[in-house]
């Protein structure tokens, strides 16, 4: 029973990691209607930059601040140079152009940092464990990831629904022409939102750095899963992204943990051995197809548009 509890926590934690990635993506998606495959590249850059800053400054918190600022700036630069003109294009062009950006950023990192994975570690004050229940120890850092993810969700909700910027964002998403006719600089607004999305990707990347491998291509490994999250949740919806992330994190984790033993009760052990992991790999895609079959716009279709 304790194992089920622990696995549930693992599922939540993985879901929150996915949410950190998904939040920026769905924001950009929902507001500018831009499919940004290069979101994974910003995640990778966040991890590389945070690692480098941590090595240089010796302070984890300073590294976090610097990496966030840097990904924000990179996001804005990329938006200004390459993506601005893509908003009006169809999704196909966006997919291709941002696919091109992935190739570019991967090689850029190879040129700057080399192709080998780089060394990352947790600061000592974050590497301990907390005891949730007697006998259930949980890594402190993972608990922190959960907290940060939930805090980001709350802040985004506040930003979008309670601030002037959020009001403009919502207005811009539903009727761009009207908002600019009212004298709002919609261009600047988009650039800012993209920068914010980039910083969120960077945050996800820097949080992932100490527990995953910081290497080229790390963005694509997670990107496809993140797309599954926002599609399940309903594109453009922060709430959908959170729910989608938790559902995917949970289904994936519990599938990995319990599918094989479950199958073993009906199949022979060797059949369960091969079917279990195979099915676990496909589980989130099956989930997504099923969700879209019943709700073609995802669980929480964005009300705008």
């Amino acid at each position: 029973m304790l194992l089920v509890l622990e696995q549930t926590l693992n599922g939540i934690q993985f879901g929150v990691t996915l949410f950190l990635m998904a939040a920026g993506l769905t924001l950009v998606f929902g507001i500018m209607n831009l499919v940004n495959l290069a979101h994974g590249s910003l995640y990778m850059l966040g991890a590389y930059l945070a690692t480098t800053f941590f090595q240089r400054t010796g302070s984890f918190l300073a590294a976090v601040a610097l990496a966030l600022a840097a990904t924000l700036v990179i996001g804005i630069v990329v938006e200004l140079i390459a993506l601005q003109t893509l908003y009006e294009r169809d999704h196909l062009d966006q997919v291709l152009a941002t696919f091109g950006l992935i190739l570019f950023f991967n090689e850029l990192v190879a040129i700057v940092w080399g192709r080998a994975a780089i060394y990352t570690k947790l600061p000592p004050w974050l590497s301990g464990h907390i005891e949730l229940l007697p006998g259930v120890r949980y890594p402190l850092y993972r608990a922190l990831v959960i907290l940060v993810g939930l805090a980001v969700a709350a802040l985004l909700w506040l930003l979008v629904s309670r601030t002037r910027l959020g009001m403009l964002i919502r207005a811009g998403a539903s009727n761009r022409t009207m908002v600019s006719a009212l004298g709002v600089n919609i261009r600047l607004l988009y650039t800012l939102v993209f920068g914010l999305g980039a910083a969120l990707a960077g945050l996800a990347g820097l949080m992932a750095g100490p527990i995953y491998a910081v290497q080229i291509g790390m963005g694509e490994e997670i990107l496809i899963q993140v797309f599954v999250v926002i599609v399940i949740g309903g594109i453009g919806s922060i709430r959908g992204a959170l729910v989608g992330a938790l559902v995917v994190g949970m289904v994936d984790t519990l599938g990995r943990a319990f599918l094989r033993p479950l199958l073993a009760t009906v199949l022979s052990p060797s059949a369960a051995d091969s079917a279990g992991p195979a099915l676990a790999s496909m589980l989130i895609y099956i989930l997504m197809a099923a969700v879209l079959f019943f709700r073609p716009q995802g669980l929480f279709p964005a009300s705008a548009r």
Partner: peptide, 9 residues
């Protein structure tokens, strides 16, 4: 790939 990427864009 650093050349192909921007070419795509």
């Amino acid at each position: 790939q650093a050349i192909l990427g921007p070419f795509l864009v």
